[in-house]
Amino acid sequence: MENVIEVDHLSMHFNLMEEKVDSIKEYIVRLIKGNLLYTDFTALDDVSFSVQKNDLLGIVGLNGAGKSTLLKILAGVFTPTSGTVKVNGTVAPLIEVGAGFDPELTAKENIFLNGLILGYSKKFLKDHFDEIIDFAELENFVNVPVKNFSSGMYARLGFAIATVVKPDILIVDEVLAVGDFQFYQKCERRIADMIKNGVTIILVSHDISMIERLCTKLLWLEHGKVRDFGDKERICEQYKNS
């Protein structure tokens, strides 16, 4: 099988400065005092794994295990400190829906702005505009500034925009927790559709039952290291017992 994602000896370090030095004066003062020492924090430590086409990878781990950092590296937001990440195909990140919304703009304007930020073409957005509005169930709110939206509406619009494209890889980070039950089911159906169409999915959730239901493979992170990777049943069992 073809590897869609190859992560090789990936490490990510952050400089945890006690207080962030972001003024010139402070920087110079600290430089003179020799106080520019950073506390190094390793978010990911030598992580290697690979994902094949059609895989449904679940990532589990406690808070602070490095799940979100890993997703952000895969989505291209962070540049890793060392190691390589090879991604074949387009990535649609559903890391935080509606992150790119401008509250002052209307739903319609935001669809175009956000869509273009996510890398869709203008024509594509025009063609799929009705589909997005329809899926988000916002027919009556097309010209309302999104600052007046409820958080559910916000999330629906974000999910609708992010999933209208047919990506090769979809990254889902806990976003399904928002919205009501009906919308949740709708989202799950759409994800199931994508799986059928051969989209590779990476899912992060604390909801172990959902992971068990949807995923085919698991990656278990602990303090930035891979605790286990591979077969779903085995890891699920261990994770629940840990």
Partner: peptide, 9 residues
């Protein structure tokens, strides 16, 4: 900043 932290742009 918020956007840049969440999506690759």
């Amino acid at each position: 900043g918020i956007l840049l932290k969440k999506v690759y742009v």
